[in-house]
Design a protein around this nucleic acid. Structure first.
Length: 605
RNA sequence: CGGGGUGUGGCGCAGCUUGGUAGCGCGCUCGCUUUGGGAGCGAGAGGUCCCGGGUUCAAAUCCCGGCACCCCGACCA
């Protein structure tokens, strides 16, 4: 019953005040099928705009891109600019409604802030420059600087500064669904990464860090419910707090082939590859020598070449990664030859911003690039945790041309600090379990901002002792379009999309076979009314088209149930119901069909 | 920003090397037939060949410049 009610509330919001429904009503009325004044109904396909295509666009790569276009859900306007077609927008709106309900359930208040924002706010927060070229900038007729908001921290914090006076005004959670504008360097895969997209962004305001933790937890629970209700396969992972600083962050990831992030997974463990840590498998080392021994490696500069020539595992080499910090000091990061530097983790390990050293800096301070190493180097050395000192000897660069050293023992032959800054590899372990790494798309994130914006924009309150304190903030985003794309990626099959029930454009795709005026049509017309009355949002394919075309379109669009009214089953006073996910069909009696279909619908995923 | 690629009817493509008045499949319109897996026959409509300049008697085709879009990488709340 709860499901029924919620589906009705979605329908009401999806249909109110749209041009589509009024156009449809006019069309329907002119056909004298429904009396004037009847509640807006679900569409008949003969009157609906569902521009399906037999072939995907030539430039589409990702499955969700191909299917979104083929199923008539989106159309491209420009690079990273997409229109949602009516059926696609219905799916999007259902996702929005789920998010809205769960946000409201944690006491968040929906509002709306403008896309266009004064540049001044962004200058005050420091992000006018920090955001870089991704920020759309423009001028109005008075030459005042404006930006198109990629997000709304500045605006919402400004409001908080104006409205929050006392600790009694806190906590608060505000959110909106608003179009975001980002001049992405590389839009891709239709709505997966676009330059303009709708985002739900929420902002929490608390008295202190403990309060922020509570708001953050509320969002984490709301997000769990949102992604579950959307029918996605998902997990939350610890995330990099990034350039924005902050006190903690989680990303909500939906695994799918077109995903842009790599996620490291093991039982009880999930992390973005950017920050993941794991145990590396042991590597066989040649025995340590009494002292490092020079070995000629003429012309050999890569790990593979040196390892091959010396007949040792690549992991028995130590790779040197020289970086220069802000204070111009050079640090030599050393890790196993078979590992790769993770620059985000390296930054965390160094506790400082850095850049790779230039060839000239390497030459001047260490030796010839290609055979640099730690022994005798007069620089700070950071040794990766995966480099173990268990009696074996490593091969390292000698800081002289065409020479390496072997039998090298860290600690004995060079001093070092420890750090974890390598990129986790498939086959590494966490808690004894091998990790797997899979692509995923980020569908949402939660982020403890702290006081960065409140301090910059003067959002303070008076605490119980009457002293002024900055508000503690968190921000929480979700991209409905990405949820739609991820759902398509996760559940599509060879025939097309297979929507999770809760976010499908329609609940039922009703197909009537036989031409206009045939017996099947009369039964289908009646069933259409009954399905609507039962509370099922039904797309009725009443077109004068062949069965193959109708079935193909229904499976492409991917509503949870396809109901077919055709002569073959009608002979036995039955209709056919196909469950889209798995494509299993069954017949059900014509009498009471709507109720049976409703029950079947409730059982779908 | 680096590398690669593509722009020809609504969609997918051929034609370009070797210049000569633009073609195929699907879709669309009309008629008839057909109706449980993108059906058949017939008749049609629809194109500034991305834009600008140049060469030439003649440019989709050759040359120069530009724009747009896609893919890989870098970047990315």
């Amino acid at each position: 019953m709860v499901l029924l009610l919620s589906s009705r509330s979605i329908r009401a919001s999806a249909d109110s005040g749209t041009g589509v429904s009024s156009t449809r009503q006019t069309a329907v009325t002119s056909r004298s099928v429904l009396p004037v004044g009847t509640l807006a109904r679900m569409p008949r396909l003969s009157e609906y705009l569902l521009p399906t295509e037999r072939e995907p666009p030539a430039d589409a790569e990702a499955l969700s891109h191909k299917l979104l276009v083929r199923a008539g859900l989106v159309r491209q306007v420009g690079a990273g600019l997409w229109s949602w077609m009516p059926a696609g927008w219905r799916a999007h709106q259902r996702i929005v409604q789920i998010i809205r309900e769960e946000m409201n359930a944690i006491g968040a208040m929906e509002m709306l802030m403008p896309i266009m924002q004064p540049a001044e706010l962004w200058r005050r927060s420091g992000r006018y420059d920090a955001f870089g070229d991704e920020l759309f900038k423009l001028e109005d007729r008075k030459q005042a600087d404006l930006v198109l908001g990629p997000t709304s921290e500045e605006v919402v914090t400004t409001h908080a500064a104006a409205f929050v006076r006392s600790y009694r005004d806190l906590p608060k959670i505000l959110y909106h669904f608003q179009t975001k504008e980002r001049d992405e360097p590389r839009p891709r895969a239709a709505v997966l990464r676009s330059r303009e997209f709708v985002m739900k962004d929420a902002y929490s305001f608390d008295r202190d860090r403990a309060g922020l933790d509570v708001s953050y937890e509320k969002h984490a629970r709301a997000y769990d419910r949102i992604f579950d209700r959307c029918g996605l396969e998902w997990y939350s992972v610890e995330a990099d707090v990034g350039a924005m600083g902050g006190f903690g962050a989680h990303e909500y990831m939906a695994p799918c082939p077109a995903g842009e992030n790599d996620v490291v997974l093991a039982p009880g463990y999930a992390a973005n590859l950017e920050v993941a840590s794991a145990q590396a498998p042991h590597v066989e080392l040649p025995p340590a020598l009494a002292a490092p021994e020079e070995v000629a490696t003429p012309g050999l500069t890569t790990i593979a070449e040196v390892a091959g020539a010396l007949e040792v595992a690549e992991g028995a080499l130590l790779k040197a990664y020289p970086v220069v910090l802000n204070d111009d000091s050079l640090v030599l990061a050393m890790l196993r030859g078979d590992h790769k530097v993770n620059e985000i983790k390296l930054g965390l390990a160094l506790g400082a911003q850095f850049r790779p050293a230039t060839a000239q800096e390497i030459e001047e301070r260490l030796g010839p690039p290609g055979s640099i190493g730690p022994v005798g180097a007069q620089v700070r050395i950071l040794l990766d945790d995966a480099v173990v000192a268990d009696g074996g000897g490593y091969v390292v660069g000698a800081n002289r041309p065409n020479l390496h050293l072997r039998g090298v023992v860290p600690g004995r032959d060079f001093a070092y600090e420890r750090g974890d800054f390598r990129t986790v590899l498939s086959g590494d372990t966490v808690g004894g379990h091998a990790v797997r790494i899979e692509p995923a798309i980020e569908v949402g994130n939660i982020f403890k901002l702290g006081t960065r914006y409140s301090v910059a924009l003067g959002a303070n309150y008076l605490d119980q002792s009457g002293s002024s304190q900055p508000i503690w903030m968190g921000c929480y985003g979700i991209g409905p379009a990405r949820i739609a794309a991820a759902a398509i990626e996760q559940f599509a099959d060879a025939s097309g999309i297979s929507w999770p029930r809760a976010i499908a454009p329609f609940d039922v795709h009703l197909v009537s076979l036989g031409k206009e005026g045939a017996e099947e049509r009369a039964y289908a017309d009646r069933l259409y009314e009954e399905l609507e009355t039962a509370g099922l949002q039904t797309l009725y394919d009443d077109r004068d088209a062949g069965p193959g075309e109708k079935f193909a379109d229904a499976e492409l669009l991917g509503c949870p149930l396809r109901v077919t009214v055709g002569r073959r089953t009608l002979q036995n006073r039955e209709i056919e119901v196909q469950v889209r996910r798995g494509q299993e069909s069954r017949t059900v009696p014509l009498d009471g069909a709507a109720a049976t279909v409703f029950d079947l619908w409730r059982e779908t995923a």
